[in-house]
């Protein structure tokens, strides 16, 4: 084997990654373009809102309540090292609204929704339903992608808002039942400490994560390979790509919103 072979292999991988990023960017651009031009499929949009928003509520709620509860315990234990146990309400609130609410909510939605969108659209592709849409004069981007992306962008922030509230309540429950906080004081400290942008930044993150989740699901579904294996690979890729993109974009957004 030539000494340059590993470099050639690395170069090929970088080129493939750049090409894939370019294809994804074009797909995102086309999706945004179609958002602004008719026809609009209201029924498909409402159905996507139900599937993505309403039906994700239980999993996001459960994630939030356990996260808020565990966070309260951790902050109490950590705070005790320098006599700062009293900050539990404030740190739970800021931790949930700025970071854990949107990120864990986004990741749970990615697991549930990106996989389901990729599997549904991938199956439609391998069973020629996408071709059938085209022959019936219906643009698959407009009919399948746009309603899902729009619905996820609008409903994930709402899920994040509900998740924030449930997460804070999880912290309150543990704080008052296990750690001996006074209920009214806990809530007062939480409310007085939180600023609008603590919550608003999390909601903006939620909208970005929702867009990412639906975009990845649609992109990998539309580009699914043949057969059950192709759909399986598309589903896996959609979840992995959405999760990594959520974590990476979370860092970028946090830098933009909160760097001094």
């Amino acid at each position: 084997m030539s000494l340059t072979a590993p470099l050639a292999h690395l170069g090929a991988m970088v080129l493939a990654a750049l090409a894939a990023t370019g294809r994804l960017a074009l797909f995102a651009g086309r999706t945004l373009g179609h958002l602004l031009t008719p026809p609009f499929y209201l029924r498909e949009f409402l159905h996507a809102c139900l599937q993505i928003g309403w039906l994700s509520l239980p999993v996001v709620g459960l994630t939030a309540i356990f996260t808020g509860a565990a966070l309260a315990l951790q902050i109490y234990a950590g705070g005790a090292r320098f006599s700062a146990e009293a900050v539990v309400p404030q740190i739970v609130a800021i931790g949930m609204t700025r970071e854990l609410g949107p990120v864990l909510g986004g990741l749970m939605v990615a697991a549930r929704v990106a996989s389901s969108i990729a599997a549904e659209i991938g199956t439609m592709k391998v069973t020629e339903q996408i071709d059938a849409l085209v022959t019936l004069s219906t643009n698959p981007m407009k009919y399948l992608t746009v309603p899902r992306v729009l619905a996820a962008t609008l409903t994930v922030p709402l899920l994040v808002a509900v998740g924030d509230a449930i997460g804070v309540m999880g912290g309150w429950l543990v704080g008052t039942e296990r750690l001996g906080f006074n209920s009214a004081t806990y809530m007062k400290n939480t409310i007085e400490f939180l600023e609008f942008w603590d919550i608003g930044s999390g909601l903006v993150k939620g909208a970005v994560f929702g867009f990412i989740v639906a975009l990845m699901g649609c992109y990998y579904g539309m580009n699914s390979g043949r057969g059950a294996q192709g759909v399986g690979r598309a589903t896996k890729s959609a979840v992995v790509a959405a999760s990594v993109a959520i974590l990476a974009s979370n860092y970028v957004l946090t830098e933009v919103f909160f760097s001094a």
């Binding site: 439609m124 069973t127 020629e128 339903q129 071709d131 059938a132 022959t135």
Partner: peptide, 10 residues
């Protein structure tokens, strides 16, 4: 109009 091999029904 097109009839697909597997039907391609939605």
């Amino acid at each position: 109009g097109m009839l697909f091999q597997g039907g391609a029904l939605f």
